[in-house]
Simulated scan of single mutants.
Amino acid sequence: MHENVPGPVGSGSQSDTAASDAGHSGDALTATVRGLLPSLTPAAARIASLIVEDPAQVARSTISELSTLAGTSESSIVRTARALGFAGYPELRLALAASAARQAPRSTLTSGITPEDSTAEVIAKLVHTESQAVRETATQLDPEQLAGAVRAVCGGGQLHLAGVGASGLVAQDLQQKLARIGRPCHAHGDSQSALTSAVLLGEGDVFLAVSHSGESRDVLEPLRRASAGGAVTVVITNHPLSTAARLADFVLVSAGRETTFRPGAMASRISQLVVVDCLFVCVAQRTYEVSSRALRVTHAALEGDRVG
């Protein structure tokens, strides 16, 4: 079972960076808070939602003003700030002010798509949102967790991938990429197939699950069974405190954002594919001779097929 699940902001090396430096993007802190939202208490979630929606406003608000805005007590605000890894509300305000200062001015691109938007506006908003998801994923993806997952995937044991719906497409994408560099693996798009494979895994094997929420029953039981059998478990998820994250040995955090016409499953896809690409490239780098030869051979085979 995973012993270093990314905790609240400030609890680990990755989160410390998010809290004190706001990462490479002005949205790093709010992206981290967004990922923790499902795991917070109702009062803390109301405060966190305000942080995600308008960090600049929270940074400008006194503790009494924020208490009124969130409909919570001042003590709840202090507890929430501490849960996010800060000594108190003043420190959280400073971090949010710094984060807001690094962000571009708010514009219509940051709002959801509406029925009145033109086609050009839809394109602009989608491109903005997905570009933002890529940048935020870079701030949330822990290099140490990624390195551990890469070592596991590079091992010689069985490798099974699981994901349902949109997450299943991401698992299939990783399976196809790894197959091109000579790392055989199996991608499962339904719970029964994932479970019957997971129970047969043991030491040296790897089970990797993709789940936006980290709470999908279709992957939780296979994760438990794979872990119980001694396999290394890896999870790609938007929520670092989810059940799946707590079950996994390595957690790779993505940062997709939901909008009006893009529910979680769709919003997570681009950011999950960024994580998959990072994992794949690191595996190919670590197994450079085998991977480069496999890519040459498969490329030549495809080119020959096209010529024929």
Rank of each mutant, 00 (worst) to 15 (best):
P105S: 08
T72Y: 00
E303H: 15
V33N: 00
A284H: 01
T129L: 14
V134Q: 03
T80D: 03
L273G: 00
A19S: 10
R296M: 06
S216R: 01
R82G: 03
V274L: 12
R180M: 08
E303I: 09
E144F: 02
E116M: 06
D218K: 03
I236Y: 04
A120P: 09
Q57M: 04
L84C: 13
S242Q: 05
I77G: 01
G26M: 07
D21S: 09
Q103P: 09
R183L: 08
A171Y: 15
D16P: 06
A149L: 07
L37R: 10
P38L: 14
T41C: 04
S64H: 08
I77F: 01
E121R: 11
A101H: 15
L141Q: 02
T137L: 10
S242C: 15
V235I: 05
L220T: 04
S13Y: 14
S76Y: 01
G12T: 12
S73T: 13
G7V: 07
A22K: 10
V134Y: 02
R224L: 15
E289Q: 14
T119F: 11
R151E: 12
Q158N: 15
E289C: 08
S211C: 07
L279T: 00
V5E: 07
P263V: 06
R46M: 15
A244I: 06
Y89K: 07
C185Q: 03
S13K: 15
R79V: 04
T139V: 05
A294M: 14
S131A: 11
S242H: 05
V210H: 00
A226K: 02
Q145P: 03
H186L: 08
K125H: 15
R269Q: 06
T259Y: 09
E91T: 05
A228Q: 13
S191A: 10
V127L: 04
P55R: 07
I77V: 15
L66V: 15
R102Q: 04
Q132D: 10
T62V: 15
S15D: 07
S13F: 12
S242A: 06
V234N: 01
S254Y: 03
K177H: 07
T237I: 11
T237A: 05
A226D: 02
A198D: 03
G88C: 09
V206G: 01
D249R: 01
G71L: 06
G230A: 04
K177L: 06
H212W: 11
R135C: 03
H2A: 11
S61H: 03
A104H: 14
A124P: 05
V307H: 14
F280M: 02
T298K: 03
S292D: 05
H239C: 04
G163A: 13
T108Q: 14
G88D: 12
E136K: 11
E144T: 11
